[in-house]
Write a protein that binds this DNA or RNA. Sequence first.
DNA 1: CGAATATTTGAGCCCTTTCAAATCGTGTGG
DNA 2: CCACACGATTTGAAAGGGCTCAAATATTCG
Lengths: 252, 252
Amino acid sequence: MEALREFVRRLDFHSELNETAKESLSAIRGRPQRLDREEELRSPFGSKNDACLVASGLIGSTSITKEGKRQIIAVFIPGEICNIGAIIAKESSTTLVALEMSDVVWIRNSTLVELTQDSVPITKAFWRESELQAAVLKEWVINLGRRFARERVAHLFCEMACRYAYAGQMVEPEFVFPVTQRQLADIVGLTPVRVNNVISGLRENRVADFQRKKVRIFDWVALTRKGDFAPSYLPLRSRELAAQAGIHSAAN
Amino acid sequence: MEALREFVRRLDFHSELNETAKESLSAIRGRPQRLDREEELRSPFGSKNDACLVASGLIGSTSITKEGKRQIIAVFIPGEICNIGAIIAKESSTTLVALEMSDVVWIRNSTLVELTQDSVPITKAFWRESELQAAVLKEWVINLGRRFARERVAHLFCEMACRYAYAGQMVEPEFVFPVTQRQLADIVGLTPVRVNNVISGLRENRVADFQRKKVRIFDWVALTRKGDFAPSYLPLRSRELAAQAGIHSAAN
DNA sequence: CGAATATTTGAGCCCTTTCAAATCGTGTGG
DNA sequence: CCACACGATTTGAAAGGGCTCAAATATTCG
């Protein structure tokens, strides 16, 4: 399973795993499921703590306020496990939704718990992965709390660029980010109309563009400046960092 | 050390620890430090991954945007370890600041790492504590992304009420929340002026009040309704839940 | 090819910010 | 223990960013 390989690669990258650990992780089996766009995820195993590995598409963790406004709290790209903290936490109050037609693989909670049971390294690797997700969350708090619309969108584009690049899904100046502007709005805490305006602005300034679910970056440096973005909170391999520099020089 | 006892109690509450684990946790020793208000925290042991246990006061994790605006990403009350995920994560880009004159106890990173080294239960307990902090973070994202000023403040008051109650620091209709309105603004992503208006409104409506760093709750139900607050994401003991009901009936 | 969505554009309004100034509190030094 | 000084809170008015409502135009998908 490709997604699992990517997931193990991620864990190995940030927590150096030994061969035994990698083997037992690679041996994980789960149940595949295909989701339509905007379809809610529910574990076929019945527990709210089962894990969901993304194989394709994009999954969002969402919440609705009493006024019916939706906020997307996190997004998960292929190779990531949605809400990996759910392994040990109580069930969360958020709902997982496919933001695009997606394939996921459900993994029984017990499968992962057993893996952690007698391996501190694996437990720590999961925890570390979970911390990475939390680091993104912290950036989102800053984004929502203290940045204007344009900066929010720019910051998000930078973040996703790094994450997709890390997963090897960046095709030089552009990458696929399969969301609608409405969904984008629910991520950055704005209105679809406002998001549209902001994208127009970025386009006119030849900084970046977003069309047909693809983000195209014309000027990486300008985008990071607008978005007040510093990638240090994300895991990056040197190759990707180099590639990012490349985006800049190749731009405009 | 009182703070450590509280910390171990927390861990024991959400992850049932056996006696051995509790003993080794209770044996933790650290270096005390007193902080002035708005003083930045720096570990005396030199590592960015050392842990900081709050003994009194209030610690905030903060970040400054390029425009000089500050956002507080998390607050930590006595008995909590600031940013416990730092045990295994890379150093974060956020800064810890004392929001009020505070006492903390610094614990060497190696001390905690050793505790986790041969104990999956302790590792999981730390991870769980870390997930709890993440759960709060998610609520903040919703708060900042999709709620109006009044709702944000109301939600924060509810959250802090539950957290202080959980720590046994609630003195029936009120609790000490040692922040200025400016700091409050940096938590809820607003302006001090706006926060002040909102508090006036809550006061006039006899829902809650905030004066001399004390939050006084007149009408718990109204406050939770205004703040769109559901406490399920927080750890609560039944006694506190009962107490909350009490706040309501005792009100107005 | 047609229906349902998504994107785009425009105008008016509202929430929040900014800027300013007055009042109130609190901590410190005498 | 008092007075002073600085920071915090309060209040007001004007400006601005983002929202709402609405309608036109593009896309996408069956």
